[in-house]
Nucleic acid binder design. Structure first.
Lengths: 136, 136
DNA sequence: GTATCTGCAAAACATTTGCAATTCT
DNA sequence: AGAATTGCAAATGTTTTGCAGATAC
């Protein structure tokens, strides 16, 4: 299971022109295998036990590289917290203000009154509220 | 002109139940009079010349108070940068990746596929790209 | 053997906090 | 005087940077 993901990660990294080092493969592997839109700290904490020499510097530099290559989408939804999403397709997010979890949601923008004529390259939509789980 | 805004600010502050101190009136006044969605640092830098004893701590505590009272909307659009919008009505933003300016835009969400049934309280929409001015 | 990658420590920022000084009524 | 407001300095937390050591091809 994990080895499949590692293979997948190696492929992905080569595809975007990044040499597949051990750390990078593990980080990409973690990102692919988790739908939790992790922060740098969460990636680090999750991998540290199995990679005792891992440093946050490496996680920072890897996510930066992956964002630059278009493989990762950085999400600025809450103050002082950048989350990373390996799904770069157009979609929206929902952030629960109780548990803090971030979920994927499908949504699209209806109309834009862009009378000044700005060149729009990306659309970001997110919702905040109480998630299904915390509502109960 | 400025004195009118100061009067307006005083009124606004009383309205939301905050005592209108000198610093607060000047800060609200600046926010009302500028459409630039300033950061704390920008508010501070703009007011410092005319208020030599002003400290950033005061700006931080004032914007926090105003956010709590619902008068200011904090915007998390770029990493490491919180901007404040005195227009708390529903609207979207456009952030230019060249000049960094943040403009107001009208837009709304078309559909949401919220099959998990999260309770949505707020909707945030912003666009990124090149603004009208930088495009030329 | 040379490039790249990694990790430590320090630096750079933004924000918060504790507390003392000031201001306001 | 008493309560609220302000400002300084230190603390906190996150991200970046410089550089030296490790690793890979």
């Amino acid at each position: 299971m994990i080895s499949i993901r590692i293979k997948q990660s190696e492929h992905k990294l080569r595809e975007i022109g990044v040499s597949p080092s051990h750390s990078r493969m593990k980080i990409v592997s973690y990102l692919i295998g988790n739908k939790n839109h992790p922060t740098v700290d969460e990636i680090y904490s999750a991998l540290k036990p199995s990679m005792p020499t891992l440093s946050k510097t490496t996680v920072y530099s890897t996510v930066k590289l992956l964002v630059d290559k278009g493989f990762l989408l950085p999400l600025f939804i809450d103050e002082n917290e950048v989350r990373y999403d390996p799904d770069v397709s157009v979609h929206a997010h929902f952030k629960c203000r109780k548990c803090g979890d971030l979920h994927d949601v499908q949504a699209s923008v209806q109309k834009i009154y862009n009378k000044e004529g700005h060149l729009i390259e990306n659309t970001h939509i997110y919702f905040t509220g109480i998630c299904f789980h915390c509502k109960k």
